[in-house]
Write a protein that binds this DNA or RNA. Structure first.
Lengths: 136, 136
DNA sequence: TCTTGCCTTAAAGTATACTTGAAGTATTAT
DNA sequence: ATAATACTTCAAGTATACTTTAAGGCAAGA
């Protein structure tokens, strides 16, 4: 089983060392070992944790929910319903977010086409496309 | 051309009145009219603005970029390249966000299946599924 | 007319998620 | 050995995006 220094994890996950200390302070990272000179040692357990944190973060799960999640996970038998609720609700949220982003992407793509149309008109000294077409 | 009170816009866009005042303070809403007793009056121009703000917000564009966008839009002839850059980069960001969310959704769906498997095992008093399967 | 409730400004406060600073100890390269 | 860099704790600071408070003016129903 491998071990890692704070700097190694920092590079692996592209987070600052201070963020790793912060995650430990607030209970997202637990059971962090120490060298005889008090420096943190992480293990593959922490790699797995940080993969989960990264996934949760990328999908907009707030830290408070992550704290709940890892607390539930530490005592899964007694919190299985709570953890299922948490991940199921988060799954639903992600699907809604994706749908919303896809809808809004269409609007942004429209804006990109619209302003490129304006630029062409400016370059050719031609009249601008109608603004009526803009606010769809 | 219709006009709207702050309360009407607040309800239409599901934002607090204070947020509409804040958006005006920081330049996201401009040319807001007043009644003879100093109360704000909005027009369809502001409806269009708030649709754009809402779209940008839903797709994670920071307010500082929105400020740039509306400043460019107010003087489009001289800022057409800047506004095209802004919306094109934002389009790219949204696409990346959607892709990332779709990838991470697969992980969350895996967690949902995994914890439901645990729950079934608990309910049946059966042994738990292997943790090896968990960290994919 | 009174009361309730919405409007106004300006400044201060809040929530979330870190980040930085200070002071001190430890490690690494020359 | 010495200098530069990295580690430690703990508290305070920062960034973003609002939200609330205070103190007062305006408005609509009983």
């Amino acid at each position: 089983m491998s071990t890692y220094t704070i700097k190694e994890l920092s590079k692996l996950f592209d987070v600052q060392s201070s963020t790793l200390r912060y995650y430990e302070d607030i209970g997202l990272l637990t059971n962090v070992g120490r060298t005889d000179t008090n420096q943190r040692i992480y293990t593959d357990e922490h790699i797995a944790r940080l993969n989960a944190i990264s996934c949760f973060k990328n999908t907009g799960l707030p830290i408070s929910k992550m704290q709940d999640f890892f607390k539930y996970e530490a005592n899964l038998e007694n919190n299985i319903d709570e953890i299922i609720d948490l991940v199921t609700e988060h799954e639903k949220n992600i699907k809604e977010q994706i749908k919303k982003m896809q809808d809004e992407l269409a609007h942004i793509e429209h804006k990109v086409r619209f302003y490129n149309g304006i630029k062409e008109a400016i370059d050719k000294n031609a009249p601008w496309p109608y603004w009526d077409d803009y606010n769809i």
